[in-house]
Amino acid sequence: MAGLRRVILQCALLLVVLLIVLSIYGAFRGAEAAQVFFNSIPVGVYWVVFAVLLTVSIGIFPRLLKVPSLLLIHTGCLCILFGGLYGSKSVMQWSDRLGSAGPSIRSGRMILYEGETDNRVMLEDADPRIGKLPFALRLKDFRIEYYDAPQVIVESDDKQVWHIPAEAGIEYPLGDRGTVTVLGVFRNLKLAMENGQMVPYDHPGPDSNPAVHLLFLAPDGKEEKRFAFSFPGGGHGTGPWSVQYSPPGMIKDYFSDLEVVENGQVAECKTIEVNDPLYYGGYFFYQDSYDSAEMRYTVLRVTSARGLVWVFLGFAQVVVGLFWHFWILRRRGI
């Protein structure tokens, strides 16, 4: 038996070294290729052999059964392997073929327009198909929060300065100099001729000409429309004002207000953001991307929760087992 145990230990060491080599190979290949590689059939065989070896080890090493910390660590590794395999693309495809009632969408993306409801998911992993959720999601609102809120800096000819929030519709008092109203905020301002008048509009595409359209109203009722741009000296006009637009800075967070619609009823509402997904019906919904040109839609990443409980249960076992074994038992010389 001692000889068999030694052989098993040597095999375990060999498998560990092999996984080190495979990990380095995967790192050089990049995340996408590595994912395909580690989910391929030969490496799948490796995972199964690893799991079998762990199971055999627990059976034939009495120490693993007698020392609870070691048992936790090794069964934890088994749980992680089981959860990983159970939630893997290959196993999900096989269970789909066998007619499993489980979820068939492993991961994908949804595009949701504001006010619209949808249940279609564009599948990932080079799968061109569209998956359908057994419920739908509605996007009520999508918004972005910035570290520095956009603002307009207005300076009068007597050097008084006002900082005005750059939000369309805001009317702001300028002391005894009247008021200023923000008529429109543009990421990429262009002008078009309509009925003989120049009309501002936001041109789709990257933010290359951020600007704000302003209306100054003097106490005597005199009106003046001006544009404020992001560069100094922008905003030509005849009034006693100097204006500059400070566009939004770095994005702080993205938010999507979602409703889960099932059987025509709203089953759940949640505002998701980065690091705070929605979980419903065995799926997680993550804030992934958005319509950077016109802010009309949000992009959600959808992933199945299949196998996740086993993976995290295994992780917890391994961590607890290691601290118990190396920090507590070892100090007592066990």
Partner: peptide
């Protein structure tokens, strides 16, 4: 990101 393991380098 929706993945407990992303096979990132």
């Amino acid at each position: 990101w929706g993945d407990y393991w992303g096979w990132d380098p």
